[in-house]
Amino acid sequence: MKIAVCVKQVPDTWAEKKLRDDDSTLDREAADGVMNELDEYAVEEALRLIEAHGGEVVVVTMGPDRAAETVRKALSMGADAGVHLVDDALHGSDALATSYALAEVLSGRDFDLILFGSESTDARMSVVPAMVAERLGLPQVTFAQKVEVDGSTVRIERLTEYGYDTVEASTPAVISVVEKINEPRYPSFKGIMAAKKKPVETLTTADAGLDSAQLGLSAAWSTVAQFAARPPKAAGTVVTDEGDGGTKIVEFLSEQKFV
C-alpha cells in the first residue's frame, strides 16, 4: 500500500500568532515552526497502516524552505520519503490554491490513501482535505476517529455532531483524522539518524507543472481588507475561596443579570 500524508508546518502551537503588516499574510518568521499537531496523528496512522498491511509512506508538504524541518520530523517518526514543494510564487496562497498545488503534486503518483490532519492550527479552516478530494475526484472519508483498510475497501468512523457515522469507500481515497484516533510516537534516536538518509524530493512550481496564475497572494479568491488586534480584554476579578466562593459567583451573576 502506498500512502501519502500531507503535513503542514505551522507556528508553534503556543506562540502568539500575528499577520504581517505589509501583505496581511501570516507572519511565519515570528515564531518557531512545528508540524501541525493534527498532522502528527495522520503520520502516526499512516505508519500503523503500513505496519499492519505493508507498504510505503510519503510525506508531502508545501511551504517555505524551513518547512523541510517538518518533512524531516515525519521521516524520523518513520515515513519513508518526502516531497517538498517550495517556491516564492506560493507565498500568500489561499486554501483553494494550496489544494490545487497539493492535488497536482499528489496526482499520478499512485497513492492508495492520502491522509490529512482535519485542521491546521494557523488557518483553522478544515477545508483543504475536502478540496483535494474534490479536485482529484476521490472519495472523501474525513474526520476519522478510526480507520480500517481491508483490501481495496477503507472503512472509517466519521465524527459527527451527534456521534459518528460509519463510512465506506474504495481506495484510492482521501482521509482526514481527528486527534482521538491514536497517540503519535516520538521520533527515536535511531529514527532521527535514519531520517538523514531518506530521500526528499524538492520541487519548484515549474517542476510540478503548476500554473502560476492559480498560485500566490495575487491569485487568492479572497483578500484581507484590514485587520486589527482586538483590544485586550479588561482583566477580570479573581478571588480566593474562603468558604464563600459560590456565593461570590452568584453575586457576580446577579450583577450581570444571569440570575
Binding site: Q140, R158, T160, D165, T166, V167, E168, A169, S170, A173
Partner: peptide, 9 residues
C-alpha cells in the same frame, strides 16, 4: 463514493 453505512447517535 463515500457511503454512510451506519449512524451511531
Amino acid at each position: 463514493t463515500a457511503k454512510v453505512t451506519d449512524r451511531t447517535v
